[in-house]
Design a protein around this nucleic acid. Structure first.
Lengths: 345, 345
DNA sequence: ATGAAAGCGCTAACAT
DNA sequence: ATGTTAGCGCTTTCAT
């Protein structure tokens, strides 16, 4: 298996096979028939390439063909299971289409995100999948207007011509609140995630609407939190439960939020679900093995990724933009034990 | 913010500024002083570039400079938190060094892994971080011999000149077994992960040695399993516990293995830790909120990634290979509740 | 202080 | 059926 420190070029192969670079190129690219290169010559070229351990330079190819076969993915935090799962779907799908994925981690900072996208464009990626930080979209719109295939995942922009994929936050929230209402809860607190993002805003609105439909007004003092983190959940739950001793249920916008709330509840001497019910968006690994298995609205994360990947592939193949702009992926309510019946008082 | 569909080239900028491409290139690359370009000209070039929204082609640059600023990362499963965490560390560190990371998912298949590495080499990545499937290393050795900076993470190759990073599996296992022995356990079963990989082999050997030091022989009938998965854990635990009713503790090589075992125990009517103790390698999110908080030997995954990244950076900077080949990252025993004292019988 | 021209490795007209 | 040659967009000698 001869594998010399490859700075071998096509002309090395051509020389070895005693043909021109053109012929070598054609033979190696499977264009032998098209250019009626004699089978023996083609074979000879292939053998020479093999023998020398020739590996065509994708860089040179990219420059010449103006196609890099590169796809960019930007996520706020690759160590977060939600985003790494999306990254995986997209990466794997890209690989199977002969693309390579450049992955970039914005660390949740908009400026970094802009920066990374610039870098990716400079590298001539042919498409972009972005899970934006979600509070500003101008730079993304601009990419889209330049005609580069772009798919936005999760933190969408409500009014936009961009192709976007996100969960059905409204339907999910409705199911969760419905469950709470059916169990007799009337005083329901909301643990918010990152405000100003579509998932957060839609969920909050849906809570408000669902409650309103049941004749309950969601007071803003019943809403707290500002991140999808454990800490935010802990803080906001502590605030809410301290402020309103009559809260009987909490709707958390993420699993970390819910665990923060759970911890807060314990510290306040509240039992789940006896004294406090808890529902949350997203899901945990091994939920069934938890002290109190959480009732969750779980997103179909792999499907978000798959859909994003296929929307990219479609644009790459057809060159045109899919007509449907905003894609919603259904969510599923997993009823476990963290929601209890409100004891009649 | 003018951002035309960038197929703008340097010569467009040069024309706009009424200078040669040479001067344009120099001005934009901060070589104005070196080539004594008049400040006004340099400024003019920069403004023209800005005005046109010029973005230099990294592809052309790469071809000319023979430096791509690309780094390849290959992992078996990006949706696995262990690997995504490593991918994150490496990606972030690469970004801060001005590199971009191409991420590839081998799906745990050696052939795919080989394939992906070939592709990455064809793309002229300047360095490679690989979490190999771990059962064959020839292709990696070959890359290393070609002189390309390469760091192998996690599933190392015992005898090798490659730069490798992995946890201190032996020390970790010893601590776990020591804890079990101190609690009076003598009949200890082992739930194996993927056999033939260094983490699995070293851990098994360390169990055997630790037991031997206490005068206990590890019979091969006390070892079962072949994957780091939940299913493997479930199956092997069921086998072991059925075969040997006197087993009082299980050492699991991964958290999924441990949860599989936990499920198996429940189904066999065994309580943890009263009837069966459980320790495992790796860690779970929210371990403290589990029904039975697991005692674990947890790896410092971010550190594995950071170390790998810095070893890559070192090679890239110095051009030479670090002298220390195999790097061990310490692990930590997290004592929680899944290990109980053996009741004197 | 600035430019002309060569060339990185490859593909594709355009010959022959 | 095969070869010559012109570039892709950039950097860099080598001139001036």
């Amino acid at each position: 298996m001869p594998k010399a420190r490859s700075s071998l070029t096509l002309s090395d192969v051509a020389r070895e096979a005693k043909v021109s670079v053109t012929t070598a190129s054609r033979a190696l690219n499977g264009l032998a028939e098209k250019y009626r290169i004699s089978p023996s010559t083609a074979q000879l070229v292939r053998e020479s390439a093999e023998k020398l351990g020739f590996r065509p330079s994708q860089v040179a190819r990219s420059l010449r063909l103006k196609r890099t076969g590169l796809l960019g993915i930007v996520v706020p935090d690759l160590s977060n299971a939600f985003f790494s799962s999306i990254a995986r779907s997209v990466t794997v799908s890209a690989e199977s289409d002969g693309f390579s994925a450049i992955l970039a981690d914005s660390g949740g900072e908009v400026e970094k995100e802009k920066d990374l996208i610039e870098q990716l464009l400079a590298r001539s990626v042919e498409a972009l999948v972005v899970c934006p930080v979600g509070q500003t979209f101008q730079h993304l719109e601009s990419v889209h207007q330049q005609g580069l295939p772009l798919v936005v995942v999760d933190r969408c922009q409500a009014e936009s011509e961009m192709i976007q994929v996100t969960s059905d936050h409204i339907a999910g929230t409705r199911q969760a609140i419905k469950l709470l209402l059916e169990n007799g809860h009337r005083r329901i607190g909301v643990l918010q995630g990152l405000t100003g993002t579509l998932p957060c805003d839609e969920r909050l609105q849906a809570v408000s609407d669902s409650l309103a439909a049941a004749g309950i007004r969601l007071d803003s003092s019943m809403v707290d939190g500002d991140r999808f983190t454990y800490e935010s959940g802990y803080r906001s739950a502590t605030n809410l439960l301290t402020r309103h001793s009559d809260i009987s249920a909490l709707f958390a916008m993420s699993t970390p939020n819910a665990f923060g709330a759970y911890q807060a509840a314990i510290e306040l001497g509240l039992r789940v679900p006896e004294d406090l019910s808890l529902v949350c968006f997203d899901d945990v690994a091994y939920a069934d093995f938890m002290q109190v298995p959480l009732t969750t609205v779980s997103q179909d994360v792999p499907e978000l990724g798959r859909l994003a990947a296929s929307l990219v592939a479609e644009q790459l193949a057809n060159g045109n933009c899919p007509t449907q702009k905003l894609h919603r992926v259904p969510v599923t309510l997993h009823t476990r034990s963290s929601v209890g019946k409100m004891s009649p008082s």
